[in-house]
Design a protein around this nucleic acid. Structure first.
Lengths: 233, 233
DNA sequence: ACAAAAGTGTTGTCTATACACCCATGG
DNA sequence: CCATGGGTGTATAGACAACACTTTTGT
């Protein structure tokens, strides 16, 4: 019953690649390393590598990221999709499962010498299809910020509303109103006041209350925008 | 001949699998074929097969589906994700890229003898992880019906509002109000009246106007549920 | 005329943005 | 006591579900 689809041999090489994003200094950044060898010397690439024999893609991705950034600092990791264009890598056939990874803003993991954070909105010359993968990751993040609690993955354990506003603004790429963001997240029960306050700024001003996310696991908070099920009377 | 899963060489076997869904007789159905050979004889499986050397996963999926259902009748095909658990298939290491496919309700493609449509809400005994893939496909469809124009992929070229209501009800799994569905889709500019009317039913009644979808390509119609960008004054 | 099905008008509720105003602190 | 940023109250607009009501057909 198996269709015999040409290949006499074993199969196809498979790699995992992650666009790891964080917000820093008001800008959404992605973790890239610079290729030292051909092909595409000098271009910037996403971290990743070959899938091992005994791993699923998720474990493999976490293992490979551990070499670039302490994996314990990853606050979120999810699959984007498979990139499979036959000529995506010259002279070799390699499939890639692409991921979106997130690191909270308070973490500053040590990274290898060939590795650096780059602004996600003005990418350097990218290797292969890694630019496309990065843009997909950015879009996925932007979409999920609006209908899930994914903000927790960008934010530190405790934060002020205006700090959170900066994170959302940088990630979304446009100005977000602190007032309305707080209302939306509070109505959905995502924010909990810690009771603490941040010290007030250098020039005075009311001290800001500190909040935390109630949960630090992905949850869909706005499941049915329209066409909701009827309510039972 | 046992497949040597630990080849130091080439890579990993890769297959593509599709959960092809349609609505028929008020029920959401999935296209399955029954395994005649070990392992898992008699269990039902998703159509698919091995990825070829020169194909991307999308083309491969379309090619393989052509054996089960005329590919020209597929109104939509999208990637779900990679299933990569090392023991998902006994004794062999096979990755799968899973897809959601849709067929409009007016099409009735001929299918092979070992193949049949099954209700997506009460699946027969399924092979491997194909049950999980099917449920993922169903969830993806349900989500996208609410914030995209994906309804076009279930509907025939022209339809009455109450026919469309049946399709949405079956796909979503709960009763949808024709009135409100029409309003939502019209407000978004997705529906266009054809000017024609359907003949009125067997026992009389006002003849229903016929509509069509303005576009038959996937478009996100409700992009920002919340945290919209500020309007420029 | 009446039953049946299609389609419209209307209302109440909820969500979200915008913007004015009040609050707490440092100098 | 005032500048500065934090936080709340309120108005307005829009989206949606529910349901009563009107329209158009066949018998």
């Amino acid at each position: 019953m198996k269709a015999n689809a040409t290949s006499a041999s074993g199969g196809t090489e498979h790699e995992v690649l992650a666009a790891v994003l964080r917000v820093r200094a008001g800008s959404l950044q992605v973790l890239l390393w610079q290729r030292a060898l051909a092909p595409q010397v000098g271009r910037w690439a996403l971290p990743g590598g070959r899938l091992g024999e005994q791993e699923d893609v998720d474990s493999s991705m976490r293992r490979q990221l551990a070499e670039k950034v302490d994996v314990a600092r990853l606050s979120h990791l999810e699959q984007l999709s498979v990139f499979s264009e036959p000529r995506r890598i010259p002279h070799r056939r390699v499939l890639a499962t692409a991921f979106l990874g997130l690191v909270p803003t308070d973490q500053d993991p040590a990274v290898p010498d060939d590795t650096a954070w780059h602004p996600a909105d003005s990418l350097p010359p990218m290797a292969f299809d890694h630019g496309a993968i990065t843009r997909r990751a950015r879009e996925r993040l932007r979409a999920k910020l609006s209908y899930t609690n994914l903000g927790f993955a960008l934010a530190p354990p405790a934060f002020t509303i205006s700090h959170l506003r900066e994170l959302y603004s940088a990630a979304l790429g446009y100005q977000v109103s602190a007032t309305n963001m707080q209302r939306v997240l509070s109505r959905r029960g995502l924010l909990v006041p810690t009771g603490e306050s941040a010290p007030s700024g250098r020039v005075g001003g009311r001290p800001a209350a500190l909040f935390r996310f109630r949960e630090r696991e992905l949850r869909i908070t706005d499941p049915f925008a329209v066409l909701r099920p009827p309510r039972q009377p």
